[in-house]
Each structure stands twice: as structure tokens, then as C-alpha cells.
Computed example of a mutant assay.
Amino acid sequence: MTDPRPVRVGLQLQPQHADYAEIRRTVAAVEEAGADVVFNWDHFFPLYGEPDGKHFECWTMLGAWAEATSRIEIGALVTCNSYRNPELLADMARTVDHISDGRLILGIGAGWFQRDYDSYGYDFGTAGSRLDALSEALPRIRSRWQELNPAPTRDIPLLVGGGGERKTLRYTAEHATIWHGFGDPETAAHKCAVLDGHCRDIGRDPAEIERSVAVEKSPDEVGEALYDTGIRLFTTGQDGQGGYDLGRLKDWIAWRDERNA
């Protein structure tokens, strides 16, 4: 698929192993650097490093980011569907959408980190049951947006994260405006082709869905190869161990600017 969209660059600012003041300063620096999107994630404990290290909650933080920034888009990469009723999540997203003046991306996935579930009293179930719950939640979220007063400021972009080819990518085709995945260019090309197939099956134009991946290498190593697969949103990650270093993000921003020139 040839996507005419410009390249965009994001940072997943992982809310672990740092004080909030440092996270707040880094969000400001990310916006100042010219990134397009800043994401956090939706967990209750660190995913790596000291397992009981410092960690902050996702959506409370997004509300604060909405006030602390003025240009950059914000969102979770990704919200765990299991942790909130879909109607509540829709209302939370609509509220942050208004606080940010239309800069929210609602990223969502089925959930996977069992410690979160066990410690906070959620039923972990099975991978299949969590995916089924995501399938049920997505149309409920969109339906609730139509009922809220005031309505969202815009058609809130819905990002679905995950690479499951039979269910997750089908749900993406049915509901999402952005797909986010992981992997090298060969993997990304394959996942995009599967997503295109699901779009054709339901009569949707695949070009309606922006393609996004997490990038751990430099743009010189993987930028052009991923671009050629149709990827247009490139998101690098940073946690607070030893402080947030925006060097790699700035490399991607420079590549973006050259690629979009």
C-alpha cells in the first residue's frame, strides 16, 4: 500500500522509575523537540527494571498532559481494555479530548500483563476471552461517544495495538484509524498485508488506517525499509531509569523532516 500521509514520530514515555516532576519536564521537552505524539502506557507496575519501582497511572497522567502541552497529540500505547468499563473509558477519552482541545488518540488493546490483573482484582481470563472483550468494547466506545454531551471535539482517532492476525487485525480493520505493531520491516510488511486483507473482506479502504510501529533502532538502520512497507508513525520508547534521554527521538525527528521535505 502506498500511503500519501507524511511521516510522524512519537515517543512512548514510560511512566516508570521516575518522579512525576521529571516526567512532566520530559513531556515539555518532547513537545519542544517537535515530536508529533507522546504516549504513556496503561500498567500499574514497571514492566522491567525494579519490579516494585516507581510507577504512575495512565489516564490520570493523560489528563495532566492535556493541560501541560499545547500542540502535541497524546495517548496511551495502549490502554488495557480490561481495566475500565467501555462506556467509562469513552467518557474519559471524550473528557481528555476536550481538555487537550482535540489532541487525544485513544490507543487500546486486549491486555496481557497478569500482575496488573491479579494485584488490582481483575479477571485475567484467557487470551481469547480478553480479545472477545475487546471486540465487544470497541463498538460500545464509539456508540457512547455519540451520546455524550458535549460530544468529542473531533472523531477521536482509535488506535488498536497488537499483531494477532485472526482477531486483533480484524478488529483493527473494523474499528480503528491507526494500527500499532512491533517487529522488523519483514514482519511489518506481513502484518500490513494481513490487515489489508481484512479491510478488503469487510469492504473498507485499507488506506483509511495509518500504520504505526515501535522502533528500537536508528532511522538509518530501519527507517526507509519500514517506510516502504507503509509505516507512517514511528514510535520510540523511553523509561526513567537513569533519566529520559531524547537522543534517539531527535534522530527520528530529523529523519522525519528530511523524509517529508
Rank of each mutant, 00 (worst) to 15 (best):
H180M: 03
G181N: 04
G183P: 04
G183N: 06
G183I: 01
P185I: 12
P185D: 10
E186H: 13
T187E: 13
T187Y: 09
A188Y: 04
A188K: 14
A188P: 01
A189R: 15
H190N: 12
H190M: 11
K191R: 15
K191P: 00
K191Q: 13
K191E: 02
C192W: 03
C192D: 05
A193Y: 04
L195N: 07
L195V: 02
G197R: 05
H198N: 04
H198M: 01
H198A: 02
H198T: 00
H198P: 05
C199W: 03
C199Y: 05
D201F: 00
D201C: 00
I202M: 09
G203H: 11
G203V: 06
G203N: 10
G203D: 11
G203E: 09
R204Y: 04
R204W: 02
R204N: 01
R204A: 12
D205E: 12
P206A: 02
A207K: 15
A207S: 15
A207N: 12
E208K: 11
I209F: 05
R211H: 13
S212V: 01
S212K: 06
V213I: 14
A214C: 07
V215N: 03
V215H: 02
V215C: 03
E216Q: 07
E216Y: 07
K217N: 08
K217R: 13
S218C: 06
S218W: 05
S218V: 03
P219W: 01
D220V: 11
D220K: 14
D220Y: 08
E221D: 15
E221C: 01
V222C: 07
V222K: 05
G223D: 12
E224Y: 11
E224D: 15
A225W: 11
A225K: 15
L226V: 09
T229E: 09
T229D: 09
G230Y: 07
G230L: 02
I231F: 09
R232A: 10
R232T: 12
R232M: 11
L233N: 11
L233E: 02
L233Y: 12
F234Y: 06
T235F: 00
T235R: 00
T236F: 00
T236L: 02
T236W: 00
G237F: 02
G237K: 03
Q238V: 14
Q238Y: 06
D239R: 02
D239L: 07
D239C: 07
D239E: 13
D239A: 10
G240H: 03
G240F: 04
Q241N: 12
Q241T: 15
G242D: 13
G242R: 11
G242I: 12
G242W: 14
G242T: 13
